[in-house]
């Protein structure tokens, strides 16, 4: 029980590290994912191929391999950035492919008439997508994006094994200091539960506020 009270700052640091990783990677994943989804429905064939290749390759890459290549590989080539930034890049790029698929299927749920009406008003592709279709698609993709971001929060645990400060890696220090493994893992599990439940609550609130069923 006193594992938590004795090591509150250690746990706090790890927890904050996990939150930082989750927030920054989510932002990167959302930005890249929406961009790639736009590419995948664009009228230009080359952009469509870029989107398809991005999604197909990243969805089928083990995240550990991505971390391995980025965090152990890039420093060797003189790309000296903090490890946390590499971790955000790896997590963000990986998750963006799943966000892209969610957004794209959201775009497909918007009735065809919406796009046609926008075009008949003289809007071009960017205007149709950005001002008419995406805002409506956003309402249907709240739940799948929520579960993707929960998965992202859970996947951030991998970063701990690549010397990034986050929640799971705190067990090593606790283990060395001779604390009970069982209790230290219990508090770690609780930390992840709090984070995932918070994301879930946030997306439930968003869903209640903006969501529509189609």
């Amino acid at each position: 029980m006193n594992v938590l009270t004795d090591n509150f700052s250690l746990y706090g640091e790890g927890f904050l590290g996990t939150i930082r990783l989750t927030v920054y990677s989510s932002l990167l994943a959302l930005a890249l994912g929406v961009l790639m989804a736009a590419f995948r429905v664009a009228p230009v064939g080359a952009l469509r191929s870029v989107g398809t290749v991005w999604v197909t390759v990243l969805r089928n890459t083990p995240l550990t391999l991505l971390f391995f290549a980025m965090l152990l590989g890039l420093p060797r080539f003189g790309v000296a950035l903090p490890f946390e930034l590499f971790a955000v890049l790896a997590l963000g790029c990986y998750t963006s492919s799943f966000i892209c698929e969610a957004v794209r299927s959201g775009i497909n749920t918007v009735p065809v008439g919406q796009g046609e009406a926008a075009r008949s008003l003289g809007m071009n592709f960017g205007q149709t997508l950005g001002a008419v279709v995406l805002p409506q698609a956003f309402r249907t993709v709240i739940p799948p994006i929520g579960s993707t971001l929960i998965a992202l929060a859970k996947n951030s645990a991998i970063a701990g094994s690549f010397s990034v400060t986050e929640l799971l890696s705190t067990y090593k220090t606790l283990n060395e200091n001779g604390y009970s493994v069982l209790w230290s893992f219990l508090w770690i599990a609780l930390g992840y539960l709090i984070l995932t439940l918070a994301i879930s609550a946030l997306f439930h609130a968003m869903e209640r506020r903006w969501g529509v069923a189609r």
């Binding site: 429905v41 009228p43 775009i107 065809v112 919406q114 796009g115 075009r119 592709f125 149709t128 997508l129």
Partner: peptide
């Protein structure tokens, strides 16, 4: 794909 091509006019 109808929904995709609904986003832009036939060029």
């Amino acid at each position: 794909r109808t929904s995709a091509s609904a986003l832009y006019d036939i060029p």
